[in-house]
Design a binder for these strands. Sequence first.
DNA 1: GTCTATACTCTGATAGAC
DNA 2: GTCTATCAGAGTATAGAC
Lengths: 209, 209
Amino acid sequence: MVKPSGKTKRDAKTGILDAADEIFVRRGIDGARMQEIADHAGVNKALLHYYFRSKADLARAVWLRIASSFVPGIFQMMASDLPLDDKIDRFVEAYHAKLMRHPYLLAYVVNEAARHPEIVGDFLSAERRRAARRMIRKLRAQIADRTKAKRVAPLSAEQFLVTLAASCLFPFAARPMIASLLGLGPKAVDAFMEQRRKDLPAFLKRAIR
Amino acid sequence: MVKPSGKTKRDAKTGILDAADEIFVRRGIDGARMQEIADHAGVNKALLHYYFRSKADLARAVWLRIASSFVPGIFQMMASDLPLDDKIDRFVEAYHAKLMRHPYLLAYVVNEAARHPEIVGDFLSAERRRAARRMIRKLRAQIADRTKAKRVAPLSAEQFLVTLAASCLFPFAARPMIASLLGLGPKAVDAFMEQRRKDLPAFLKRAIR
DNA sequence: GTCTATACTCTGATAGAC
DNA sequence: GTCTATCAGAGTATAGAC
């Protein structure tokens, strides 16, 4: 408002973040080149170091933005009073929608989390840790209700959550391997994923029925 | 036999492969340094280029050795006449045992498969593709038998296989995230995984019951 | 805030002696 | 086959003009 350069500044910074996002996700942090990011953003390489001191800082900023964009929403939904079956539907739907559009995202996240564990911690603020605990507690109650009513073997809420996430996410991370293994071309893999989006919720509900 | 250097040669080459395996898996291909691999193998950097022309070639050799060491065995077991439930037990058991000892392996495989899809193709020879098809065909028959007998909704063998793999493998790839999310230390995560090894087969069997 | 030019470091790769 | 020495290129990062 006061500074006329305010808008421009944010645009340049955001532009760099957008470009870095794409290049990091495509090549990994180690494989990415600052020059390529700069080119992709249409700015000079020096500007990257002006806004973000180093490559590591830039990578951290990109990571934080990615994680912040959809993890908190999922936490909240999973901690809500929604019936368990609806949560499964929404979880599957949300991640399929997200990852269909960003196929390399998950391989990136998985890899960098393994390689640079500290940035995972950076993302999980105290507030988010509390949100995670709320989610687990709520899920535990819902699963307990169900197993009590139907006399099924007890199931840990944590294990269920991990299995749910695994079933949705892993196929996107393993997409190239699935394609090779099943002998599918790019379009056939898309169809396979689309089918999965439809079938998976029923499969998971059956397991906790 | 004829050459007295035969044994030494193989040892040096194997030593380099062992070292490269460890460093690549720990740092990723892009993050790994030829110097570090050479140091770890106790040989000179130049020797790496003598046996493997370039870093890319070395990475390919490492990948082929890793994949060859346990994928074909799994294919064969899954294509056998073993009952479906036993296959689930063995699959879960085999991968948990393997990955407990090589925690970074999966993040590496997933990442490099996404980044360098061509090396996945290198691994899947025509013979292995046939083995994969045999496995799928057998699983499809077994699942069909079961759903016919118990009147359950039909389930694609491919989808089931992916879900099975996802449930077993993803937790290892996502280990750092799971730890952060659930607030577990290294020992607690190990316990979580151990619990998972026990509970997962029952969960999966219930879904196709 | 944004650019040009450049310093400095590191890495993969090769040449050549033994 | 294995080593020492070295190079060319690429990379991150900074200095300084505008």
